[in-house]
């Protein structure tokens, strides 16, 4: 039983680490600001969620699990809000997004 929990923890932990590092690479490789927002988003959602799920398997059914769930909830509510605040502030200050192909109407 504890073996199974350990295996699940490893799987989720490796997945979360992989997506975090991919997001970090994305934030470095992307050519301009609005594309980098997507790289930040990938670490904030799936990377954070998978790592916190792995930690929840380790704590079992205790109060710490509830705290971890609340931390995950806050992260998932706060990260799009701050992402939107960042994008809106960039638009307001006149940073135009680069578009690769004309918008279809």
């Amino acid at each position: 039983m504890s073996n199974l929990i350990d295996i699940l923890t490893w799987v989720f932990l490796i997945g979360g680490s992989f997506f975090s590092i991919v997001g970090g690479i994305g934030i470095l490789r992307m050519p301009e600001f609005y594309s980098r927002l997507h790289g930040g988003g990938i670490t904030d959602t799936l990377g954070a969620a998978l790592i916190i799920f792995a930690l929840m398997f380790q704590t079992g059914l205790t109060l710490a699990t509830v705290k971890l769930a609340m931390i995950l909830f806050f992260l998932l509510v706060v990260s799009p809000s701050s992402c939107h605040a960042l994008a809106k502030s960039a638009v307001n200050q006149g940073l135009e997004p680069i578009v690769d192909k004309p918008e279809k109407s």
Binding site: H38, G41, T45, V77, S79, P80, H84, K88, P97
Partner: peptide, 23 residues
Amino acid sequence: ANSITLTPGTVSIKMEDDEILVH
């Protein structure tokens, strides 16, 4: 707007009355 931003690949960058500008 938050759900659109939460899925990677789409970010809502501006919101006026009923229209959301999505990158």
